[in-house]
């Protein structure tokens, strides 16, 4: 990629979000606009994947809501992602945790990382 294009692409990269990695449980605060009104909605779940680079990076969060698996993919640099709160650090030896989709209950959990 051309250096000048890269500079424009990386300009939107945010440094206000905490570091989080695949396997962590995060709460994403998303800005939702309904007509004129704006409100914030939280979506909490396990981070399955992060892909892309620069301002094109996205991350996928999976949660099981009322027995139904729900996945949402957010652009990391989007102004609609207001904050990301890491609620639990999880250990993962894979870069993509798509195998969690086939699992339920305790088997669908990632190992917790001891954070001191």
């Amino acid at each position: 990629m051309n250096e000048k294009v890269r500079a424009i692409r990386d300009r939107a990269v945010r440094d206000d979000l905490p570091e989080f990695s695949i396997g962590d449980t995060v709460r994403v605060h998303v800005r939702i606009s309904e007509g004129e009104k704006e409100r914030t909605q939280a979506f909490e779940g396990t981070v399955l994947s992060r892909k892309g680079s620069g301002c094109n990076e996205t991350f996928t969060v999976r949660r099981v809501s009322q027995g139904i698996g729900v996945e949402r993919t957010f652009p990391l640099s989007s102004p609609n992602v207001q904050t990301v709160v890491v609620t639990r650090r999880g250990k993962s030896r894979r870069s993509k945790l798509y195998y969690l989709r086939k699992r339920t209950g305790k088997a669908a959990k990632t190992k917790a990382v001891d954070i001191r």
Binding site: N2, R9, S78
Partner: peptide, 21 residues
């Protein structure tokens, strides 16, 4: 033409742009 990327607007939409020197 240098290449393409995207730019985010205030309201959160991503705009595809071509960078031209």
């Amino acid at each position: 033409k240098l290449g393409m990327t995207r730019v985010f607007t205030e309201d959160g939409s991503a705009v595809p742009v071509t960078v031209v020197e």
